[in-house]
Amino acid sequence: SISSRVKSKRIQLGLNQAELAQKVGTTQQSIEQLENGKTKRPRFLPELASALGVSVDWLLN
């Protein structure tokens, strides 16, 4: 799922939720909701993929 991929990649990069949120241009709460499965397809998906160094396709599939 996107939530597990985001969380595992974030941890692999040594980032906390607030640091990832800053790179993406969103809030820590938005990252938390995404990782908890409350958000399925965030509006900041391209920025998120870029910050994590992955493709949008990788996040979604």
Rank of each mutant, 00 (worst) to 15 (best):
Q17V: 13
S4N: 12
S3L: 02
Q22C: 10
I31R: 00
L60D: 08
V24H: 02
R10A: 02
Q28P: 13
G25L: 03
Q17Y: 09
T26L: 09
L15T: 03
G53P: 00
P46F: 12
D57K: 08
K40M: 14
N36T: 11
V6G: 02
A18D: 12
K9H: 06
Q22G: 10
L34N: 01
T39L: 15
E47D: 10
K23A: 12
S8Y: 09
K40G: 12
T39M: 15
R41I: 15
T26V: 15
S30T: 10
D57Y: 08
V54T: 08
G37H: 06
K7A: 11
S30C: 15
S30D: 14
F44P: 02
Q12D: 12
E47N: 09
K40T: 15
K38C: 15
L52T: 01
G25P: 08
S8L: 11
K9F: 03
R5M: 07
S30H: 13
E47P: 04
R10Y: 01
V24N: 01
Q17L: 12
L15K: 03
K23S: 08
V56F: 08
T27P: 06
S55Q: 07
L45P: 01
L59Y: 01
K9V: 12
D57S: 09
T27Q: 06
G53R: 05
I2C: 09
Q28M: 11
I11W: 05
K7P: 01
P46E: 13
L45V: 08
K9L: 13
L52S: 02
S30R: 12
F44M: 07
A18E: 14
A18S: 15
L59V: 04
G14N: 08
V24F: 02
Q17D: 04
P42W: 10
L34I: 13
I11G: 07
E19I: 05
S30G: 10
A51D: 02
L20M: 04
V54N: 00
N61R: 08
K7G: 04
V56I: 13
S8E: 14
G14V: 03
S30K: 13
L52D: 00
L60Q: 10
R10V: 02
K7Q: 08
S50Q: 14
R5P: 03
P42T: 09
V56Q: 10
P46N: 14
L59S: 00
G53E: 09
G37T: 05
R5I: 09
Q33T: 07
V56K: 06
L34M: 07
R10E: 02
L60C: 10
S30I: 13
A49Y: 00
V56Y: 08
Q33V: 07
F44S: 04
S3N: 08
K40I: 15
E47H: 08
T39P: 09
Q12H: 09
T27N: 10
T27M: 05
L45R: 00
G53N: 09
V56M: 13
L15D: 03
Q28I: 15
D57T: 06
L60A: 09
G14I: 02
S1Q: 10
E19K: 04
L15Y: 11
K7L: 05
L52G: 00
L48A: 01
E32G: 07
V56L: 13
V24R: 00
S3V: 05
I11R: 08
V56G: 05
K7D: 01
L60M: 11
R10F: 01
L52M: 06
F44I: 06
R10Q: 02
I2A: 04
Q29N: 12
A51W: 04
S8R: 10
A18Q: 12
T39F: 11
A51N: 04
K40H: 14
K9P: 02
R41H: 14
E47G: 08
G25N: 09
R43T: 14
L15E: 02
I31H: 01
S50V: 13
A49W: 00
G37L: 04
Q33A: 14
Q12K: 08
S1V: 12
A49V: 04
E32L: 08
S8H: 14
S8I: 10
E47S: 11
L45F: 06
S1P: 10
V6E: 01
Q12M: 10
E35Q: 02
E35V: 01
L20C: 04
S50I: 15
G53A: 06
G14Q: 07
Q28E: 13
L13Q: 08
I2G: 03
N36F: 07
R10H: 01
G14K: 05
T39V: 13
E32P: 01
L34S: 01
L59W: 03
K7E: 09
R5F: 04
L13C: 08
K7H: 07
F44R: 06
G25V: 03
R41S: 14
K38I: 15
E19W: 01
V6K: 01
S30M: 15
T26S: 07
T27V: 07
E35M: 03
L60I: 14
S1L: 10
S1G: 12
L34T: 05
S8Q: 14
L60H: 06
D57Q: 09
K23P: 04
R41K: 13
T27R: 06
K9R: 15
G14W: 00
S55F: 05
R41D: 12
N61V: 08
L13N: 07
V54C: 06
E35H: 01
L15V: 06
L20D: 03
L15R: 03
R5A: 08
S4P: 04
S4W: 07
L13K: 07
E32C: 09
V24G: 02
Q12S: 15
E19R: 04
F44W: 14
D57I: 06
Q29A: 13
K9Q: 11
K23L: 15
Q22M: 11
T26H: 05
V54G: 01
Q22I: 12
L60P: 02
T27E: 07
P42G: 05
K9E: 04
R5C: 06
L48P: 00
W58A: 04
E19L: 04
T27H: 07
Q22E: 14
Q29E: 15
N16K: 08
Q22D: 13
S3E: 09
Q29I: 11
A18W: 12
E35Y: 00
V24Y: 00
V24D: 01
T26C: 14
R41F: 15
L48C: 02
E47V: 08
G53T: 04
D57G: 08
K40F: 13
L20F: 03
L59K: 00
L13G: 04
I31D: 01
V6R: 02
R43W: 15
A49E: 01
K40R: 11
S4M: 12
K23W: 08
W58C: 05
S8G: 10
Q29G: 11
L52R: 00
T26E: 07
E47T: 09
S55D: 15
A21V: 00
N16S: 15
Q22F: 10
V24I: 11
A51G: 04
N36C: 10
K40E: 15
G14C: 08
Q12R: 09
T26A: 09
T39H: 12
N16D: 12
A18T: 12
D57F: 08
P46H: 14
N61L: 08
I31W: 00
E32W: 08
G25Y: 02
W58V: 04
T27A: 06
G14T: 03
E32T: 08
Q22L: 12
G25K: 06
I2Q: 04
T26G: 05
A51F: 07
A49M: 03
Q33K: 13
A21N: 01
L59A: 00
L48S: 00
E47W: 04
K7M: 05
Q17R: 11
L15S: 05
N36S: 13
S1I: 11
Q22S: 12
R5D: 02
L60W: 09
K9W: 02
I11S: 08
L45C: 04
V56D: 06
A21H: 02
A18C: 12
N61D: 14
I11C: 10
S1F: 09
I2K: 03
T27D: 12
E19C: 06
S8K: 10
V54S: 03
A49T: 04
N16A: 09
L45N: 01
E47Y: 05
R41E: 13
L15P: 02
S50R: 12
P46Q: 13
F44Y: 13
Q33G: 09
R41P: 10
I2H: 04
S4R: 10
R10W: 00
E47L: 09
V56P: 09
L48Q: 00
R43V: 14
R10M: 05
T39Y: 09
S50E: 14
A21G: 06
E19S: 07
T27S: 13
W58N: 04
L60N: 09
R43I: 13
Q22K: 14
L20N: 01
V54E: 06
P42K: 04
L34E: 01
I11K: 09
G37V: 03
G53Q: 08
V54L: 03
R41G: 09
Q12G: 09
R10K: 01
